[in-house]
Design a protein around this nucleic acid. Structure first.
Length: 589
DNA sequence: ATCTGTGGCGCG
DNA sequence: AAAGCGCGCCACAGAT
């Protein structure tokens, strides 16, 4: 085996790029010294096609090499956001990665397999697995361990360099095989959306969400105080039926459902579950005390030490992992920590503060899912309400209850309509609606009937979505993202659950499509306008950006404009509204 | 000592 | 009081 050549200058790289200029796309891979862009770096760049690849010493070249590679070409990576994140950290803004044209063989595979049996059976979406399936190539991923912790390329063996080249070859072949399949399944557009959003997800992870660790600690201490007090209340409520420890507290473990149910039973309270609503429905103070304590414990445990310990030792910020396709609907997911389930009141949210001299701009789509439902169903009342800029829940309430309803005069009726809009739209039953509204089931039943009479298009659309899922075997969003139902019974999901998923997926998934289009447009717009704005969080229909105070106004306008444009790209008839707020800290939408 | 599944609950 | 959908994280329980 000959020693692969490692390029160290721009000239030879440009010559190589010229020699493959006929290729419809190039594949790119990197080898890094580790996974943390704030501690590790790119060591090696590999770029090429199925037949020709080169290696580039990452330390020997500058951002102009990255620009030369990307240069408005389609560049395909496997799990693109990781490579982009490392490249952004290594080469900075001058590399122009925020305007890159990107394809991602990993997300493409997720799009192709979404809900299909192979999605379940296949061992993940690793390049190794796909290379085997698509190209019959054997990749030995253990070789990659050899790169971690090394200081320079000279430590790499010729074997390791050959393996690095094979990863590019495999990525190219996999993507080339995926292209006709994407075309066949009508997924080309959404594959483009996912690729375009990859730089945005890279930026989200790289930049991180700025958090005031001291302020967080104070909020946590307050929550602990409340937790101690709810605990004392519990000890009192259960004093007759629990043993005491040395300090007079009860020895009951209130985190154990079994023990709690048993103890409640000894107090004469029969309840089937320790869910909050079940406890509250008993009307017993001891049950309410359990619910109150659990609420505090949830805060202390989920948003406690382990959460804030994730603040990065170098940046002091939270750098979560975003899964671009985290749900079968197409939604993203976030972990370590999850920044998509921070309590919505201001207690913890206000601890997310922009760095000195900067501000946060928070922008969220107003009523996104209901606008999508209006667009897809073409229901005249829903559509008219949005076109006229009306309050939809109030409009629906007026129609349902036969009199004028607005937020101020009839908050109760409006709240009912809101619960109906959100619940019934996705197949909630009369029982669920009754529980939600605290009304008898008979009344809920009548409310449902009235809703379906008043909005026949909503019902027809949802039932059609369920029917199509069974007949065609898949549901789809407005961008063509699909979820296959043919193999979903395997998960032991019953017919009812499947129809509800079928009703919900096009709506939730279209929302995800729109937000991803917006993310992609935003990073490009910020780069184009030369702003120092950075994406720092996204929560399904909300995007948070951090930028210098002086850029605040311009940045806020770009956010509004690009998010609205993203909505209009899919919703042709229904107007989209975006609420934008600028503040030193994260504010509730 | 770890692993897996479950119930519960934070968010959209 | 198993059912409106989608996540991730916590603690428990039962297993290895």
């Amino acid at each position: 085996m000959s020693e692969p050549e490692v390029l160290r200058e721009l000239g030879p790289l440009e010559a190589f790029l010229a020699s493959v200029s006929d290729a419809p796309f190039l594949a790119l891979d990197t080898e890094t010294s580790g996974l943390d862009p704030h501690k590790d770096r790119v060591l090696l760049l590999q770029v090429g096609t199925a037949t020709r690849q080169v290696l580039v010493d990452a330390a020997a070249v500058g951002p102009e090499a990255i620009r030369a590679i990307f240069d408005d070409r389609l560049i395909v990576m496997h799990n693109a956001s990781f490579d982009l994140k490392m490249l952004m950290a290594t080469y900075g803004d001058a590399a122009g990665l925020r305007s890159a044209r990107v394809g991602d063989s990993q997300t493409c595979e997720q799009l192709l397999r979404n809900g299909r049996r192979s999605d379940v059976v296949m061992q993940g979406y690793s390049l190794k697995a796909l290379a085997e399936r698509y190209a019959g190539m054997e990749l030995d991923k253990s070789i990659r361990q050899g790169f971690y912790g090394i200081q320079s390329l000279s430590e790499l063996s010729s074997t390791e360099l050959h393996y690095a080249l094979r990863d590019v070859e495999a990525t190219w072949k996999v993507f080339a095989s995926q292209l006709p399949e994407l075309e066949r399944d009508g997924l080309t557009r959404v594959a483009g959306i996912e690729g375009a959003a990859a730089p945005a997800f890279a930026e989200l992870e790289l930049t991180g969400f700025p958090v005031d660790v001291d302020a967080w600690g104070s909020r946590l201490a307050e929550a602990r105080g409340r937790s101690e007090s709810t605990r004392r209340a519990l000890d009192w409520e259960f004093r007759e039926v629990a043993d005491r420890d040395l300090f007079g507290g009860s020895t009951l473990n209130f985190d154990s459902d079994e023990e709690v149910l048993e103890a409640l039973g000894r107090l004469g309270i029969r309840v089937q579950s320790t869910r909050r609503d079940a406890l509250m429905a008993t009307g017993h103070p001891a049950a309410a005390a359990v619910a109150a304590h659990r609420e505090q414990q949830k805060i202390v445990s989920t948003y406690g030490e382990s959460f804030i310990a994730l603040a990065h030792e170098v940046t002091g910020r939270l750098h979560p992992r975003f899964k671009a396709i985290g749900a079968q609907t197409g939604r993203s997911a976030c972990s370590e920590p999850n920044l998509q389930n921070i309590p919505s009141d201001s207690s913890f949210r206000s601890c997310f503060r922009a760095a000195e001299g900067r501000v946060l701009v928070t922008a969220d789509y107003a009523g996104a899912e209901l606008r999508i439902l209006a667009e897809m169903s073409e229901d005249p009342v829903f559509s008219r309400a949005f076109m006229d800029g009306l309050d939809l829940h109030a409009a629906v309430a007026s129609r349902l209850f036969g009199r004028r309803v607005d937020k101020e005069s009839e908050p109760e009726l409006r709240a009912r309509a809101k619960a109906i809009n959100f619940g019934l739209a996705y197949g909630m039953g009369a029982g669920g609606l009754a529980a939600q509204l605290g009304i008898p089931e008979r009344e809920a039943e009548q409310l449902m009937q009235a809703h379906f009479r008043a909005f026949p298009r909503i019902r027809a659309f949802l039932e059609d979505a369920a029917r199509q899922a069974l007949r065609r075997g898949f549901g789809e969003t407005m961008a063509g993202r699909k979820l296959w139902f043919t193999d979903m019974r395997r998960d032991g999901r019953d017919e009812g659950t499947l129809t509800r998923i079928a009703k919900n997926m096009p709506i939730q998934g279209t929302n995800a499509d729109i937000t991803k289009i917006a993310l992609a447009r935003l990073v490009r717009a910020f780069a184009r306008e030369g702003l120092k704005a950075r994406l720092v969080n996204m929560v399904h229909d909300e995007i948070v950006v951090e930028l210098p105070e002086a850029e605040g106004e311009a940045g806020a306008e770009i956010l509004r404009k690009e998010m609205i444009a993203a909505g209009a790209a899919l919703l042709r008839k229904t107007p989209v509204e975006v609420d934008v707020m600028t503040s030193p800290s994260w504010t509730k939408g």
